[in-house]
Write a protein that binds this DNA or RNA. Structure first.
Length: 200
DNA sequence: TGAATGATTTACT
DNA sequence: GTAAATCATTCAA
């Protein structure tokens, strides 16, 4: 069953980061096929107060503008000169909270994902990282600000396994905020990017 | 206008 | 384990 607006707006971002585990992301493709998979790793970014978030101190720019949109909006951005990341914005408009999708367990369109990634369909490297997820799912600038409640990207309800948590990855610049355990993942799922936690 | 840097991935030692 | 790749965004001046 497709998730509606209320799913994204009723709970706080930490609750949503957990609740998103097990949900199925479905994305159509220009190639005709479609790709989908279960979200198995997320990170929460807490708006204006969170030094690790792009929206820290309510920084509102062309890039972060969509973080201030209503829950259910996609926040897509480019980093390191080569990688895209996708977040799902949560809560009400004006509150810049978002959940980063860090890893997905592929379900449909494995062949297309493998072609886009340049690895075997059976490889965990297909979707076990935020940049890899975007490459496999074909998510880039054209998805900036799209509404998951209107499509073509949608989220479908689904079962989830046992959950683990750890500090977030790659945010050491954020000082004490980097130590907060705001990363969530399915334990023992082979597509989780760092199964054991925070080792660099 | 210029300089620094990053919510990463990949290849290599 | 370390380092290179590579450029949009950000902020200072």
């Amino acid at each position: 069953m497709k998730l509606r607006r209320g799913f994204y707006t009723r709970a706080d971002v930490l609750t949503l980061a957990r609740a998103l585990l097990g949900k199925r992301l479905v994305v159509p493709s220009d190639e005709g096929a479609r790709v989908s998979g279960r979200i198995v790793e997320t990170e929460a970014y807490l708006g204006a107060e969170d030094k690790a978030a792009h929206s820290y101190r309510n920084r509102r720019t062309a890039r972060t503008e969509t973080m201030f949109a209503v829950g259910g909006t996609a926040y897509v951005f480019f980093v390191y000169g080569m990688h895209w990341h996708v977040n799902l914005v949560t809560t009400r408009a004006g509150a810049p909270h978002a959940v980063l999708i860090r890893a997905i367990e592929p379900l449909e369109g494995l062949e297309l994902m493998a072609a886009r990634r340049g690895v075997a369909e059976t490889s965990a490297s297909l979707t076990n990282g935020p940049g890899k997820v975007c490459q496999a799912f074909g998510i880039g600038a054209e998805r900036y600000g799209v509404d998951l409640c209107r499509g073509p990207l949608v989220l479908i309800d689904g079962p989830r396994g046992r959950i683990g948590r750890s500090p977030r990855i790659g945010v050491d610049y954020a000082g004490e905020w980097a130590a907060r355990p705001w990363r969530f993942f399915e334990r023992e799922n082979r597509y989780v990017s760092r199964p054991r936690g925070v080792t660099s």
